[in-house]
Design a protein around this nucleic acid. Structure first.
Lengths: 244, 244
DNA sequence: ATAATAGTGTCTGTTAGACACTATGGG
DNA sequence: CCCATAGTGTCTAACAGACACTATTAT
């Protein structure tokens, strides 16, 4: 933010998107198969370069998502995730990538777009475990996105966005269990969610899915930030930073 | 991360730094007086453009800090804060700025460097209130940095870093009160900190500062992440997202 | 009736917050 | 003595976690 008389170097600016959804009880991330070098044929996050020097970063992110996955981009809320800019992360030269995170309810199977040979949902745990290899440093970006999503469930009413317009409390619990990767007690979850006023509100009727007593239906309430938060059990009670 | 045959636009990449410290019981932020247009003479965060296309982002941040504030940059831990890249935020053209946050104990008064007419500590609350005007969108960046610092006090042992090598529990409490901007009960704070094992460890002797009973001395313990966290009282019990 | 899921009641251990109280120094 | 700060004890209300129990449907 200073200097003159000397010309600062220009860099290539890219955006990458971590789009998370819940499908078949698993947290899934949208990946595309790269159609061009480098890493041609490999799986990667959707993303790409800014189109022109006036394009807004989030606009670029939405455009890339529409191009590569033909997704309806309107309703997505994009959130800044991080910047990945180590020299050498892209063989084409100095590329600094700004990553965005979006979390959304059961999104449809995307169709192949123009830039990518294909776009598909993949289970996030398979990416994190290394079972699926990703181009560039995209695995790291996915890991950061998943961790951010887990944290957001604690402090925001985001989980309701994973469900349809109406849902049962058990539906909501499945969201938490899938994203956090741990089982929760249904009874305690039930009351915890109920007493967090403004989180969910009753929606008249009931629903019968398969067997058992029909469940009441709810919709998302007006509250966006949860205080007190939904507590996520400590990941590893005796991990780093812990002792006693 | 796709496309070829067409050349992506280059943008100017800058780094900005939010350096926070605690001086005279107030959270303070390091600001420089801009020596060049635009905003010449105005207060701004230290920062600047990448020197060359191979420079690492954090390296650029450290270099700018050394140049503009002649600060010893070695021990600072820089943490990614955000990206500020709206078109039009800089009159010189498309500038995307990556902001970093550093939090450190009683740093010395900086001396004027080469790029800036001066660098000085300013109270963060004066910046947030608008009493001090900042160039560009730097006030917003400071606000994001302060909020991040407040959150970090909750979940990490960062507060001990604001104190000297040894400190009393009252010293530590003053850190929390200054950063959070609220008073805490000394008795409850005392026990809360004590029972969070690994947070602080006893350091032999005692200290008598002015009047009253001498206090025991402690030093930072081995634990870096606090679980359970130090809970920060809800900012506004009835603010956005709240009701009932 | 049985299975299965929804929803309620209740106990227990822990914790935040309030605040009385004791301890130990300097005038 | 008094004052000020350090440190302890203790009560209460809220809450997480465990889990028995009741309710309501389909088969």
């Amino acid at each position: 933010m200073t200097e003159d008389r000397w010309t600062p170097p220009a860099v290539l600016l890219a955006v990458d998107l971590v789009i998370l959804t819940l499908r078949e009880s698993h947290l899934q991330v949208l990946l595309v198969e790269r159609g061009v070098e480098p890493y041609k044929g490999a799986l990667a996050l959707p993303g790409g370069f800014l189109r022109d020097a006036e394009e807004d970063l989030t606009a670029a992110a939405r455009r890339e998502l529409a191009e590569e996955a033909a997704m309806d981009v309107e309703p997505l809320h994009l959130e800044h995730l991080g910047v990945y800019g180590e020299p050498g992360r892209d063989p084409r030269g100095r590329v600094v990538s700004v990553a965005y995170l979006a979390i959304a309810p059961g999104l449809p199977e995307p169709v192949a777009g123009t830039d990518a040979a294909g776009a598909r949902w993949q289970r996030a745990d398979r990416v994190l475990s290394g079972e699926l290899e990703l181009a560039f440093d995209h695995r790291r970006i996915v890991a950061d996105g998943v961790e951010k999503a887990r944290a957001k469930l604690e402090h925001s009413a985001l989980a309701t966005a994973f469900c349809g317009p109406v849902f049962t409390i058990a539906d909501l619990q499945r969201v938490y269990e899938a994203v956090w990767g741990i089982p929760l007690d249904p009874r305690n979850f039930y009351r915890k969610v109920q007493k967090t006023s403004g989180f969910i509100v009753a929606a008249g009727s009931e629903r019968k899915v398969t067997t058992g007593r029909p469940a009441r239906l709810f919709r998302a309430g007006p509250r966006t930030v949860l205080y007190p938060p939904m507590v996520r059990p400590a990941e590893q009670p005796n991990a780093k930073g812990r002792e006693e």
